[in-house]
């Protein structure tokens, strides 16, 4: 806090530095804000000037209208979707880190399983959605919504696992030799070196992992039709209500970019030794 204040103070001193960091950050924020405003204005102008049918090509104001009208249903549906996504995400996160630790500790097991992990990661896992729903429905028909939880785990797990594996293996030879010389146990290896070295990778996996968990849940709801944001969105197709579709996208987009931003904030607080990026590694 004081550091930032002094930096801003310093930039006000005449002749103190050429262009201050804060100043250029301000311009960047202003430009970003301007971009959003321009987009909205352009969109509204096109819709109004061309006299487009608000049912098919709604203006931002029409979207706000639709949002207001669907708000009660939306707030009813949101907890279902978010619960599935968040619970699934957390399970996948814990599971992926734990599995990665076990695999990195047993190199032979890792080598044996690697083609399988890579294989599962490169096929479209989402195609399994109907099968998962079928199986969950087989166990208990009234608990079909559990399929959404399973889908969230299934879709988010493998990319996070690979990120954690990459992270834990990210130590150079000199460190490895040093650990061997000190006779470090596997647990000590993780405690002192690997966990810390792997953290940036794990955070990158966490950012895309949350989006993936949301994707799994939403597609699960698309197919199974259990009450939630996904089934709300797919029912819009029959009603041809674009305004509502955009409103749903906006709500879910803000939630998920909010969570990604939150993870990014935690990351930049926790990982002080290197720069973090909001997008993560693709």
């Amino acid at each position: 806090m004081t550091a930032r204040d002094s930096r801003t103070l310093g930039s006000r001193v005449p002749g103190g530095g050429r262009i201050s960091i804060e100043n250029s950050r301000l311009t960047r924020w202003a430009l970003s804000g301007l971009g959003v405003i321009l987009l909205l204005v352009f969109w509204q102008a096109v819709a109004t000037l061309l006299g487009l049918d608000p049912q098919y090509f709604p203006s931002p104001i029409d979207v706000m209208d639709a949002l207001q009208r669907t708000w009660p249903t939306l707030t009813d549906a949101l907890p279902h979707t978010l619960a599935a996504a968040v619970v699934g995400y957390l399970i996948a996160l814990v599971l992926s880190i734990f599995t990665a630790m076990v695999l990195v500790a047993n190199e032979r097991l890792l080598n044996a399983l690697m083609p399988f992990i890579i294989g599962v990661n490169t096929v479209p896992r989402i195609a399994l959605t109907p099968l998962v729903i079928y199986w969950v429905g087989f166990i208990s028909l009234s608990a079909t919504f559990l399929a959404n939880y399973v889908m969230a785990v299934w879709v988010a797990f493998f990319p996070m696992l690979i990120a954690a594996l990459d992270g834990f293996k990210n130590i150079d030879e000199a460190t490895e030799n040093m650990l061997a010389m000190y006779g470090a146990t596997t647990w000590q290896e993780f405690k002192f070196v690997r966990l810390r070295k792997g953290l940036p990778f794990i955070f990158d996996g966490m950012k895309s992992g949350f989006i993936l968990a949301m994707i799994g849940t939403v597609v699960g709801e698309f197919v199974s039709g259990t009450f939630g944001i996904g089934s709300m969105a797919s029912s819009v197709i029959g009603q041809i209500a674009i305004g509502r579709a955009i409103a749903i996208v906006l709500v879910l987009g803000f939630i998920s970019s909010g969570v990604v931003f939150l993870i990014y904030q935690i990351e930049s607080q926790l990982i002080f030794w290197q720069e973090s990026s909001i997008m993560g590694e693709e």
Binding site: S32, I211, A245
Partner: peptide, 25 residues
């Protein structure tokens, strides 16, 4: 710089939720 917020937003949206929009159009 102007497109950045839109790009981050579009990246973070769980994309399946957009599918109905494309299909309706």
């Amino acid at each position: 710089q102007m497109a950045l917020p839109v790009v981050i937003f579009a990246y973070a949206v769980p994309h399946p939720i957009l599918a109905p929009m494309f299909i309706i159009w």
